[in-house]
Each structure stands twice: as structure tokens, then as C-alpha cells.
Amino acid sequence: MADLPELDISRRGMLGGGTATVVIAASPVAAAQDKEPMQADPPAPIPLSFEVNGEKRDLTLDSRTTLLDALREHLHLTGTKKGCDHGQCGACTVLVDGVRINSCLTLAVMHQGDRITTIEGLGTPDRLHPMQAAFVQHDGYQCGYCTPGQICSAVAVLDEIGRGVPSYVAADLTERPRMTDIEMRERMSGNICRCGAYSNIAEAMAQVAGERA
């Protein structure tokens, strides 16, 4: 640390809180290796293939590209939304081999050979998936930005409950979970809707769950 005077100043400035010259090197590593700039070795693109909505897709991607950006920017499947890019909102929810994940929290190159389903793969405006139709009927959305993530999650949640996956609100872990309101609300809680359509989403899910049962 002794050879990083700038960072030292920066830290004192930060701790002191007073008026000071503050130099904030964006990356301590870069600052430490001034003689060898980072751009010497850009990450090499990596070939990759996976199945998206039933179709095999081949891509060559920057290793830093998330699954979310692979879908949105490279395959132009923009139905999957980027609300935070940090795993905080659920807008990017997709199904990978039938299980829901936040696609912003996983790199595309980790999905070689995987089977991915996005909102576009569930249904189309002319042939809505039952969950999509229920969202329309119950007005389970407003601005629509969290909606694809909510719908992908909702489909997965019913499947999880059906498979007996336990949850935080389970009173008894040895009993099979049931399609109750509280089970659904708990399991959907990683999908934020700032428009506040929760009450309606719960009704849409209850309807689909009821039709299934």
C-alpha cells in the first residue's frame, strides 16, 4: 500500500470528510500496474451454442456478456428486461432447463448447451400462454417493464410448488406445499413491481393455478 500514495490521500479524504484533493483511481489494480495497461489483452471472444425458445443459437461472445445481454443485445430478444443488472429486481427472469434464474447474474458462456425459455417462448400476442392471458385479464401489470419477468417467474413458481419445492413460508417442511396465496406471494417476492400490480398478479396466478388443479 505504501506505493499507492494517491489511494492513501483518497482514503484520508474520505475519512476526514473535509475539503481535500481527492484522487480516486478507478481501479487500484490498474494504478498499481501503470507500466502494463489493461488493454494489452482484451478478453478473447468465446464461441457458444445453446437453445433459445426451441431454436439452436450459435454466438461468439465477449466472456463478460451476461446471459441477459446475450438475449437482448445479440439475439434481439428484448422481452427479457434489464431493471438493475445486479440481481435485485427479477425483471430479467428466464427459465434455464425449466428453472427460473436472474439472467443478469449469470454469464452467457456458462450456458453452453442449455435450454433457455424467454417470455417470447411462452406465447405470442396472437397465441398467449395461459399465464400471459391471465395477466391481461386481471390487469397484472401497468408499465409492463417487470411483466415478462413476473410471468416467467409465475410459470416457474407454479411448477416449483407442484414439484414440492419448499419455501420460507412453509409451516412444515415435510409436507407438500400447496397453491396458496401466501406460497405464491413469497415465491414471487424476488420480482419487484414498482407499479404495484401485486394484488392483481396474485389473482392471475390463482386463476392459472386453479385451472391446473
Partner: peptide, 15 residues
């Protein structure tokens, strides 16, 4: 029902 509902629920409304 919202007339933009089928687009928003299928991810085909462009933001």
C-alpha cells in the same frame, strides 16, 4: 382489458 396488454405480456412492446 388494456389494448397494449398482449404486447406487454409477450415482451414485444419496445422500450
Amino acid at each position: 382489458d388494456r389494448i397494449d396488454g398482449p404486447l406487454k405480456t409477450t415482451g414485444t412492446a419496445p422500450y
